[in-house]
């Protein structure tokens, strides 16, 4: 995995819950591509299309609150997203993201410097997030070495596999 990630961003508000990310009626789906097709359908039915050109979500606080459904993480990961940056995350969502290898980064300020469609850069080791269009940089939590290893291997699932 790269230490620096770049891509166009999609910006969302606080409390984007799992019913927004993957509504309950779709939980019978099993295939990753089917789940990805309904990603964010609670708020934006064009998301799967947008995800082809945008690779970073920037959100407010409590992103992924709600259910334990890891369909929510799968939906985002398999729609091609590289990372989600939020002011805070729902606990189970965060855990599921780590398990499945969807990069999740906590930043208090990133939400304030981006608009939809702008280009972002994430420097994982330095804990910096930059709006490349406006050239503004803010801090993020630094990913611990331990967590970075987890991501690098594709999530906890790969580590479980090796054990």
């Amino acid at each position: 995995m790269d230490m620096v990630i770049t891509g166009k961003v999609l910006v969302y508000d606080d409390n984007i819950d799992t019913d927004i990310i993957c509504p309950g009626r779709f939980l019978e789906l099993n295939e990753s591509k089917d789940i990805a097709n309904v990603a964010m359908s609670g708020i934006d039915s064009n998301f799967p299309e947008k995800a082809k050109t945008h690779s970073i979500i920037i959100a407010g606080k409590n992103f992924g609150c709600g259910s334990s459904r890891d369909h929510a993480v799968r939906a985002l990961k398999y729609s091609g997203l590289k990372a989600v940056i939020a002011q805070s995350f729902g606990r189970i969502f965060y855990r599921n993201a780590l398990n499945l290898g969807l990069l999740v980064i906590i930043s208090k300020d990133a939400r304030n410097i981006f608009n939809d469609g702008e280009s972002g850069k994430i420097d994982l080791t330095k804990g910096k997030i930059t709006n490349m269009d406006k050239i503004i940089t803010v801090d993020s939590d630094v990913i611990s070495e331990e967590e970075f290893k987890v991501y690098e291997q594709g999530g906890m699932i790969q580590i479980y596999k090796q054990n």
Binding site: S68, I92, R95, M156, Y160
Partner: peptide, 29 residues
């Protein structure tokens, strides 16, 4: 795989919601 597993606190037990990967890992190990 149920976020409302926190309910078990009423019995003095620790209940936590997780996703499919954790669950499968726990079944195995």
């Amino acid at each position: 795989t149920d976020s409302h597993a926190t309910i078990l606190g009423a019995l003095g037990a620790v209940g936590m919601g997780v996703g499919a990967v954790d669950l499968a890992a726990s079944m195995i190990k």
